[in-house]
Design a protein around this nucleic acid. Sequence first.
DNA 1: AGGCTAGGTGTACGATGTACACCATGTCAA
DNA 2: TTGACATGGTGTACATCGTACACCTAGCCT
Lengths: 237, 237
Amino acid sequence: MYTMSSEPPPTPRAAGRLSRSGVLEAAVALADREGLESLSMRRLASELGVVPMALYKHVADKDDLVAGMIDQIVADYRAPQPGLDWRAAVRGRIMAARDALHEHPWLRSALERATQRTPAVLGHMDAVAGELRRGGLSYDLVHHAMHALGHRIWGFSPEAFSDGAGSTTAPDAEPAPVDPAQLAAMAERYPHVVAIALDTAQRAPGGACDTEAEFAFTLDLLLDAVSSLHAAGWRSR
Amino acid sequence: MYTMSSEPPPTPRAAGRLSRSGVLEAAVALADREGLESLSMRRLASELGVVPMALYKHVADKDDLVAGMIDQIVADYRAPQPGLDWRAAVRGRIMAARDALHEHPWLRSALERATQRTPAVLGHMDAVAGELRRGGLSYDLVHHAMHALGHRIWGFSPEAFSDGAGSTTAPDAEPAPVDPAQLAAMAERYPHVVAIALDTAQRAPGGACDTEAEFAFTLDLLLDAVSSLHAAGWRSR
DNA sequence: AGGCTAGGTGTACGATGTACACCATGTCAA
DNA sequence: TTGACATGGTGTACATCGTACACCTAGCCT
């Protein structure tokens, strides 16, 4: 279960003393530095100069730890400046989530495997829903819109399709200068995939896919669609 | 690395003899029955009446195992009947993926944590891209469309937003008859979330969200949007 | 016949999450 | 001032996991 972050400050900063928020902060820092997969209770404990079991006085278990990490970050998503129209406000909130995702690369997979919805997480969802509602959409349509926006609410659209021709193998550190023979073989089996990759490479100088632009494209596409449904007086059934 | 499923049939079905496809089949069956989290090398081995390390003669490691499982399933996605227009064909392919997802509940999270793209997986992506291309879309637009469709290509849109008011806790077996006091507290902190849940509950007899309809709604929304961009002569930049 | 190889066995190691009993220290009531 | 009690860090221990490595065995080809 998720334990509320009500910190009783018995000795606010007694030397070497742990606290839930302190543990979460250290965990976030560790994940930022070395990735989620090397965040183990033991590793985190040693980072804090403490024995592993000490952590369990502040978090229920590992799930609670990562839930807390997520919560801490989601809790200070910056709200869009007031006065924006609802569409810009939604966009702002979602972009704020995306910003957090860039600061904390582990956040995405943490959100994906998270089993709980913590207060801040619910708050973020609620805020987005609230903006849509402010635009005058019926709750019925807000509901559908939230589904349609899906993970974009969390700042990413999943990479079912990402570029780079021959990456059946694990992603290497450097771009790997594309063996032409291998590419030809690829092109025979997966002509459209390769054609897209080539088309992209030829269009952009670096040859890389601009994932930022892709994200914005998708987001705007969805917002426009929902917005015009609303304008057309859409109703369920 | 992913090992190709070229089965040399030295003794096609010698009694008790393992084979890659046999291992994968057993793994799929086990995951179907008990979920992905209880699929361990040891468990699978004992299921096959064999010592754990025996599996490693047929599978490189556990990642390769689940990649193989995914691949085996994706490989026999049913192609849409020929003659359909491109929009219906894309829809058909994506719905076929969604069907597989229902048969194998573990498939979704397996796809989410998969690190490799296996041949069948690439093939599915390529087929979808091919249908779009057949509709006359430029590769540039196909590329954007694939991004927009995102995980829907795999048969699901992630549930950032799903129903049921007070589910901060883990999902229980039975619906949990909603403590009104607790719901009131929820409604105060998360008014729109609760309002949506209530609106939905009131609209549908069971009170449950029709996730099938949600999925179709989103898919059609995106397809319509892409389709009309194309009709309007959309080009990059 | 004899060796090569494909494939199943056995043992072992290092990690992980966490249960449980323990003990130190600060707070507060008597 | 003293003693009880709660809070929180410690130590040991266990089950489970993936998998490295050395071994052995049976079937095929020359």
